[in-house]
Design a protein around this nucleic acid. Structure first.
Length: 420
RNA sequence: GUGGCUGUAGCUCAAUGGCAGAGCUCCAGAUUGUGAUUCUGGCUGUUGCGGGUUCGAAUCCCGUCAGCCACCCCA
């Protein structure tokens, strides 16, 4: 029996997890607030669900294969549980339980953390955040266009343009038709879609033999891909009416990896990075699957991850500038209180309390400090004004830091002068 | 899960087998009622961790952990 080695406490977060110090947290807040603003403008309502779910919820819908990537364990009640790897099964479950309580269509969004036990690499962590937007109880082209439009505006809101991203849209139905016309059994559809999904990443020499197993030749497939998409006319018209046509491209090779997608699928693609910023699709059968048929509801949704989005926002100069300006503005103080005469600290504290109660963001030195230091602190905090309290109380001085101009006024006038 | 590269001060890095260093940051002072610049001083290390080779290891070897990158997978 070995004596256990003394455990040295690591000060690092676990692999794939992140500490959010104020600078990083401010960036995350900028992203989250932008997401919220856009979602609300589309009349989507925010919800959340449990971070921990029965492992079964994820196994049931896609078989046992993904269990190896779940962040799962057995709890003290001997339950097999998993930290949520995605929101869709949770939101589908929530909708199924209270289906009758909500008028259709249901438009919901959430901003939440997700987990997967994988080796981390560029843009992939073990904990990450996602925005999820879902539309239930609607199967119209108008609803699909609405969600695609939301997906576009979510990225335009950060300053990204059609140069930076576009949607790649397809309908899995085109492959059902393709396979049906060739007499290929529906059970083999997932395997076939796998080949299509990897078409872009794998060389022809790899894909061609796989296609041969379905009696599909390389030339035959290329000819099919070259055909114009048949049934997207109404969707295109909807997008054209919103002035969003340029953001959308139809591409039959987009099938998305998830097993539960049934019809329209899409991803938001950043060509300069060769990466997907978001992905989603229609999953009309999932709710019925989860409830063993007790509830059936149309569903269409997508998710946006925070990691790749932030990477892209930092890489594009104008979105980077916007991000940095927003972070700076969010943390800047309205005023810094300078206590020039410690004998007046009680009066100063009283005034500062009033200013804060009025909603101003204000800081001041917690202990006696030289006036020079206090102005340095005011500058470093990005304060717009310095309120100087000294021996001349109840007269105070109000200094505009950017212009270095100073004026005297009565203490009770400060709030009005600061413009609130 | 597989492979490649990399781990030295809070950060960026130097030191190629011979005294562990620099810049930046941070703190203090020059400057006891006004921010810049400058100058001066100060703090900071089990060289990721463990073992091996050697008179001597940050340096060479083995293992391990972590990070980055590419696979695998992608909810």
């Amino acid at each position: 029996m070995d004596t256990p080695a003394p455990i040295k406490l690591s000060l690092q977060p676990l692999p794939g997890f992140r500490d959010f110090y104020p600078a990083e947290h401010a960036v995350r807040t900028y992203i989250f607030e932008t997401w919220r603003r856009v979602c609300r403008s589309y009349a989507f309502a925010e919800y959340d669900g449990p971070m921990l779910e029965p492992e079964e919820l994820y196994v049931k819908k896609s078989g046992g294969e993904l269990v190896g990537q779940l962040f799962n364990f057995v709890d003290k009640g001997k339950r097999a549980v998993a930290l949520r790897p995605e929101m869709t099964p949770t939101v589908a479950r929530m909708l199924a339980v209270r289906d009758r309580d909500y008028k259709k269509p249901v438009k919901w969004f959430s901003i939440a953390s997700f987990f997967r036990y994988e080796k981390q690499q560029d843009g992939r962590l073990r904990e990450f955040c996602q925005l999820n937007c879902d539309l239930f109880g609607d199967r119209s082209t108008g609803g699909e266009a609405e969600l695609l439009s939301l997906a576009i505006d979510l990225f335009r809101a950060f300053g990204l343009t059609a140069e930076d991203f576009h949607l790649r849209v397809n309908d899995r139905g085109v492959w059902d038709d393709f396979l049906g016309a060739r007499g290929i059994a529906p059970e083999r559809r997932p395997d076939f879609l796998q080949i299509i999904d990897k078409l872009e990443r794998e060389p022809r020499a790899v894909s061609e033999p796989k296609l041969a197993e379905f009696s599909v030749s390389w030339e035959e497939l290329q000819a099919f891909l070259a055909e114009p998409a048949p049934s997207f006319g109404p969707l295109i018209a909807e997008l054209e009416a919103r002035g969003l046509r340029e953001f959308v491209r139809f591409d039959a090779t987009i099938v998305r990896g998830l097993a539960y997608y049934t019809g329209l699928v899409f991803e938001v693609f950043a060509p300069a990075h060769g990466r997907a910023l978001a992905g989603g699709g229609r999953y009309d059968d999932l709710i019925a699957t989860l409830t063993d048929g007790a509830v059936s509801q149309h569903a269409f949704g997508f998710a946006v991850g925070d990691v790749v989005l932030e990477k892209v926002l930092r890489a594009v100069p104008h979105t980077r500038a916007r991000l940095e300006e927003s972070v700076r503005a969010a943390s800047a103080l309205d005023a810094y209180g300078v206590i020039a005469d410690e004998a007046r600290r009680p009066e100063a504290l009283g005034l500062f309390a009033q200013l804060r109660a009025a909603g101003l963001r204000l800081d001041y030195p917690l202990a006696a400090a030289k006036v020079g230091k206090q102005f340095q602190a005011a500058e470093a905090a990005g304060a717009r004004y310095a309120v100087v309290i000294g021996a001349e109380w109840p007269q105070v001085k109000l200094k505009t830091l950017a212009t270095r101009t100073e004026e005297a006024c009565a203490a009770e006038e400060v709030l009005a002068r600061l413009g609130r």
